[in-house]
Nucleic acid binder design. Structure first.
Length: 301
DNA sequence: CGTCAGGTAAAAA
DNA sequence: TTTTTACCTGAC
C-alpha cells in the first residue's frame, strides 16, 4: 500500500534523529515492531518512487496503520512549502537540493526517545544506536520472532548500572546491566530519568505543555541539558519550534550567518528559534545534512 | 599505544 | 554569572 506523500525513506531512517535507532534493514525494506493502541504491529516500509510503500502485520485497521506512519514520518508536513521557504533565503537556498525528501523521524514511544537522546549526548550516532538496540534486545518485549519493543520506564529504573552493582546485588552473571550496553557514564542518568518518569513526571503532561514550559520541565531530568531537551521535544513530542544546537550546528550557523565568528551554543539556539520559528526543527535537520553531504562539514572542521 | 570527539554536571573562576 | 574540567567508549 502506498501513501502518496513524498519522502526519502533511507535518508530519513539513517539521519541519526534521536527518536529511535534506524529500523531493521531487510532487503529494500525497513522493519520494526511498534505498539499501536497497546497492540504489537510489525511494520514494513520501503521506497516506491517518491512515496512510501508499506505493509503491516497486527491486529489494527489499515486506517490506524496509516495514521501511525503519517505521524512517525511526519508525512503531513508540507515539504514543498518548506522548500519554497528555503529557496527564498540566500543562506539556505542550496539545502533542499542536498536533502530532498528528508523528513522528521518521530518517536512512536516518547520514553525511547528520551533515553536515546540522553545516550546521544557526547556520543556518536553509531554508538548510541547500538546501545538502544542492545537495551531493546536485553529487556524489551520480543514479537514476530526478531523484533523488540523498547523496555518500559519501570523496567529500566530497576536495571543494574554496571558489573559491580550486578555482582553485589544481583543473582545473575555479568552482562545484564546498563553499562554492558556501552552507555558509559550515562548509566546513572538513564536510571534516574527512568525513575523520574515512572514516579514523578507524566509523559502525557509534557505534550500538553507549551514549548517553553516543556523545555524547563525536561531540563530537570539528569543527563538532559539544552541540546538533549530540544532533541526530546522535537523528535519525541513533535515540537517543531525546537532548534537542537550542538557543536556542528554552531559551526554551520556561525559560517552561514556570522561570518565564521565563534559564538556560544546557547546564542545559536536563540538565533535559530528566533530566525526560523516553526521551521526551526526542520532547518536544524536540513542544516546538519546539508553540511554533511555538501562537503561543508569537512571544510569547517 | 596515545589522542580525539562530543553534551552534561559539577567545580572553579 | 560564565568558564573550565572530568566523564566512557569507540574510532583512528
Amino acid at each position: 500500500m502506498i501513501i502518496r506523500k513524498p519522502i526519502n525513506l533511507e535518508l530519513t531512517q539513517l539521519s541519526g534523529q534521536t527518536s529511535q535507532p534506524p529500523w531493521i534493514n531487510v532487503g529494500d525494506s525497513f522493519r520494526e515492531v511498534l505498539m499501536v493502541n497497546e497492540k504489537p504491529v510489525l511494520f514494513d516500509v520501503k521506497q516506491s518512487g517518491d512515496y512510501l510503500d508499506f505493509n503491516f502485520t497486527g491486529d489494527i485497521s489499515k486506517k490506524e496503520a496509516i495514521h501511525s506512519l503519517n505521524y512517525i514520518y511526519d508525512l503531513d508536513f508540507d515539504l514543498n512549502k518548506f522548500y519554497n521557504y528555503l529557496s527564498n533565503q540566500a543562506e539556505l537556498e542550496e539545502m533542499s537540493e542536498f536533502c530532498k525528501g528528508l523528513r522528521l523521524f518521530l518517536a512512536n514511544d516518547p520514553f525511547e526517545c528520551i533515553i536515546s537522546s540522553i545516550c546521544s549526548a557526547n556520543n556518536s550516532i553509531k554508538r548510541w544506536t547500538k546501545s538502544i538496540r542492545d537495551m531493546k534486545e536485553k529487556w524489551g518485549n520480543n514479537y514476530f520472532d526478531y523484533y523488540y519493543t523498547f523496555p518500559d520506564k519501570s523496567i529500566i529504573q530497576d536495571i543494574y548500572e554496571d558489573d559491580n552493582e550486578e555482582l553485589l546485588f544481583g543473582d545473575k552473571p555479568c552482562g545484564n546491566n546498563l553499562k554492558s550496553c556501552g552507555v558509559g557514564y550515562r548509566a546513572p542518568y538513564i536510571k534516574k530519568a527512568s525513575h523520574i518518569f515512572t514516579l514523578e513526571m507524566d509523559l502525557s503532561e509534557i505534550s500538553k505543555m507549551d514549548y517553553e514550559e516543556a523545555f524547563e520541565t525536561i531540563l530537570k531530568v539528569p543527563g538532559v541539558g539544552p541540546k538533549v531537551a530540544d532533541c526530546i521535544l522535537l523528535y519525541g513530542f513533535n515540537f517543531k519550534e525546537a532548534f537542537p544546537s550542538d557543536v556542528w550546528i554552531k559551526r554551520i550557523v556561525s559560517h552561514l550567518y556570522f561570518d565564521g565568528k565563534d559564538i556560544n551554543v546557547s546564542k545559536v539556539r536563540d538565533f535559530g528559534m528566533d530566525e526560523f520559528g516553526d521551521y526551526a526543527g526542520y532547518v536544524q535537520l536540513y542544516l546538519f545534512h546539508y553540511a554533511r553531504m555538501s562537503g561543508l562539514m569537512s571544510k569547517l572542521k
